[in-house]
């Protein structure tokens, strides 16, 4: 618990973080940036879990454990996405979204 900061302020920050991530996912033109937006969304939920656990239900550690698992899985997901992006880069020498559109409609 942080003195002088209530749960509302922190949840506002995580909500803003979440929607920045969603906005970035939709508008970014670069695959790596899209991946970063996904990470923002995941990190918003991680903070949410920790804060809710600490402020509202401090007697159980469910939220904290959940956040550890999210971090681990997110790392695996990023590694796999980067691997696929590198493989794509070898073929088309680009990580722009506009170049990954040979399938459409």
């Amino acid at each position: 618990m942080i003195a002088g900061i209530s749960i509302y302020e922190i949840l506002t920050v995580t909500s803003i973080l979440f929607f920045i991530g969603v906005y970035g996912f939709i508008t970014r033109k670069n695959l790596i940036s899209i991946l970063m937006s996904v990470e923002l969304i995941l990190n918003a939920s991680v903070i949410n879990f920790v804060v809710i656990n600490k402020y509202l239900y401090p007697d159980m550690l469910q939220g904290v454990f959940f956040s550890i698992f999210i971090i681990a899985v997110a790392a695996a997901e990023t590694a796999l996405a980067i691997a696929i992006i590198i493989n794509l880069y070898r073929q088309i020498a680009s990580v722009e979204v506009k170049d990954t559109e040979i399938m459409k409609y």
């Binding site: 996912f25 991946l35 969304i41 996405a81 794509l88 399938m103």
Partner: peptide
């Protein structure tokens, strides 16, 4: 590769 990257980014957004 294109289908792979589309799947993993969509799945990442979905799980987030």
């Amino acid at each position: 590769s294109e289908s792979g990257i589309k799947l993993i980014l969509s799945a990442g957004l979905a799980s987030g």
